[in-house]
Amino acid sequence: MAKQVQVKTLKINGVDVGGRGDQTILQVAREHDIEMPTLCHIEGLSDVGACRLCLVEVKGINKLIPSCTTLVEEGMEVTTNSERLAKYRKMVLELLFAERNHICSVCVSNGHCDLQDLARLLGVTHVRYPYRYPRLSVDASHQRFVLDQNRCILCTRCVRVCDEIEGAHTWDVMGRGIEAKVITDLNQPWGSSETCTSCGKCVQVCPTGALSEKGKSVAEMSKRRQFLPYLTTMREERE
């Protein structure tokens, strides 16, 4: 049974736009071709509001608001492109590049990487913070896939796709803070996981070279994500 959803009118960057009451600011903005950088968001999975790239200013609220988890409201006045936001977004990316070992020139995802694309888009040309150079592992124990912790940005797309779409919940995050990392099962080699179905969805949604297919060389790993909106639509139909 379709619920009655009200239409809301609001302003984004001074332009009048309309959206349904159950849509997020991000959805409405993208429907109106307003660009918004995102990393943890991916169409078809739940949103967590973690990467902070899609923060926007809303008139009357003194905090910045994540557009991926905030529903539109009548009369809202949203700014997505202020100088302040641009500065923070660049800083978010700088922090990510400094956090682990992102060496594009030797990465399987070079040229097909969401992080790299965003850096180019937002004009991050160098990183002003000291690189932390953590010592991190590469897990190649799975027959078909590789997990390279050096490239992981903890967006948790893999965790969510495995839980919400595949239903296996092989992935989760262990530890916390700067020590957090993604794991399979009881923090064991991926190849020894009892729950992994080897469906590969996690690899396809991964924004960077953290998850890749075996046998791909530098710059060869491009991700195929069309399955996600397809599966989501098919499941909605069935309900």
Binding site: V48, Y129, P130, G177, I178
Partner: peptide
């Protein structure tokens, strides 16, 4: 704050570590 950060959002996870350094 760095060791109590949950690690979910980037500014807190990496920012506190950078500030601590």
């Amino acid at each position: 704050c760095m060791s109590e950060s949950c690690g979910k959002c980037i500014p807190c996870r990496v920012g506190t570590a950078q500030m601590y350094d």
